[in-house]
């Protein structure tokens, strides 16, 4: 079997904030009717978490789940278990209109850490990065520079950002530039 490698193999950068590529993470796109009790039960079985609220992210011991659109969730769990979990989802959702795909190798994930990470992202995204526009625990899908990304804050000092793997290197370079020491406007506090 081939050895799995994440987009940037755990690259790191220390600037105004700390940026690190998250390494291998299992990610499953699950689409279907989010109101369906069977779907909720399948999510619970997969990552041990209840259905997130609109735009919400839930974190647990087994993994996390993020609300991506009115009919789409992103399940996050250890990389090795993703394929197995997809098989289990497909089995428990037999007969229910749904789609479960392992997208672990199609995405790049970054962790940002430190004060001022709202400002780093705000440099290149049209999203409202104030604490009112993006509360902790709410996922936002938008643009960074020219490419599609999704991000959320697990607390004021920790942000997770997901993008397509094909633009992973570009996003990392972009983030490094935006997080260069002494370049934050210190507007968002």
């Amino acid at each position: 079997m081939s050895e799995a490698v994440s987009a940037l193999n755990g690259a790191e950068f220390n600037g105004a904030v700390r940026i690190s590529e998250a390494g291998l993470l299992g990610m499953i796109t699950l689409r279907g009717d989010l109101e369906d009790a069977k779907l909720a039960a399948a999510v619970k079985a997969a990552v041990g978490l209840a259905m997130p609220a609109k735009r919400g992210v839930r974190d647990g011991k087994k993994g996390s789940v993020a609300w991506m659109s009115p009919d789409e969730l992103l399940l996050m769990l250890p990389y090795a278990g993703a394929d197995q979990t997809v098989a289990r989802l497909d089995k428990s959702l037999e007969g229910v209109h749904h789609l479960a795909v392992n997208v672990s190798d199609a995405r790049a994930v970054f962790h940002l850490e430190g004060r001022g990470l709202r400002e780093v992202i705000a440099k290149g995204s049209p999203a409202d990065l104030s604490s009112m526009g993006l509360p902790v625990g709410e996922v936002r899908r938008t643009r960074l520079g020219q490419v599609a990304v999704a991000f959320w804050l697990s607390d004021e000092d920790h942000l997770t950002l997901i993008c397509f793997r094909s633009v992973g290197a570009h996003v990392f370079a972009w983030l490094k530039n935006a997080a260069a020491e002494g370049t934050l406007p210190e507007f968002l506090g």
Binding site: K54, R55, S69, P70, P126, A127, D128, R140, T142, R143
Partner: peptide, 11 residues
Amino acid sequence: PYCGIDADETD
């Protein structure tokens, strides 16, 4: 109207 986000034109 679906996700409730105030989306910028470029989004």
